[in-house]
Design a protein around this nucleic acid. Structure first.
Lengths: 109, 109
DNA sequence: TACTAGTACATAGTAACACAGAGTAGTGGC
DNA sequence: GCCACTACTCTGTGTTACTATGTACTAGTA
């Protein structure tokens, strides 16, 4: 992946995944697929799993195991109340940053 | 600084500083001050100087030393052609990310 | 049986970057 | 002499996404 995007994803990827989960519960493989659909074609699978472990440990999601027709059981993640709060905080932080960058970009032209 | 913002700044702070320099040349202390004016009140001084060293080493800026009326000489950084190109690339990357996040945020409500 | 592909999760090691904190230097005012 | 302000430098730390690799289960197919 391009270095610039890699760095920019630090801090935002977590929010993106929480955002995906806010719609409805999902499991790792599914989340990876959705990210690819969204255009983040180069996000490594391992990255997503590591992130899911992290947000689980921080208590932002609840986890349930569901058997899969094909392959090993799925770990289905759903956003809980703390996760919802964290996501809202994420949107606020993102909003602030996006505003500043918008201003800067406007001014630079 | 809040952890969330710290992580989000990774990768974007470089673009912000290049954006500031695209307006006109500036020195480290001045850039720090401008960032604070913009609302990034908690960005550490050391962070800005380290970033400036990095973009100098990557050849995005030209540097000139100017004596100061108060304090040690200033290192004035100005964006060169490569820096300009890198900044444009930054805006493209940022634009992509911002669009995706916008969609996600809209969809989540 | 052996293989391939697709699904699904996990982890060890690495690089990049913002931070905290401390330090060095110069000027001017009290 | 001491403090405040200006201006830059450096060392060590934590977080995060990446690469690379591995495990495990199913279905198809030759």
């Amino acid at each position: 992946m391009r270095r610039q995007m890699t760095e920019m994803l630090k801090g935002t990827l977590e929010g993106i995944v929480l955002g995906i989960l806010s719609g409805r519960p999902a499991y790792g493989y599914e989340i990876t697929a959705r990210l690819r659909e969204m255009g983040f074609s180069e996000i490594a699978e391992g990255t997503v799993y590591a992130l899911l472990v992290r947000i689980e440990q921080r208590g932002f999601v609840d986890v349930e195991k569901h058997p899969s027709e094909k392959g090993p059981p799925r770990k289905v993640y759903s956003l809980n109340v703390q996760g919802q709060a964290h996501l809202e905080e994420f949107w606020r932080t993102w909003g602030f940053l996006a505003e500043r960058l918008e201003e800067l970009h406007e001014g630079g032209r």
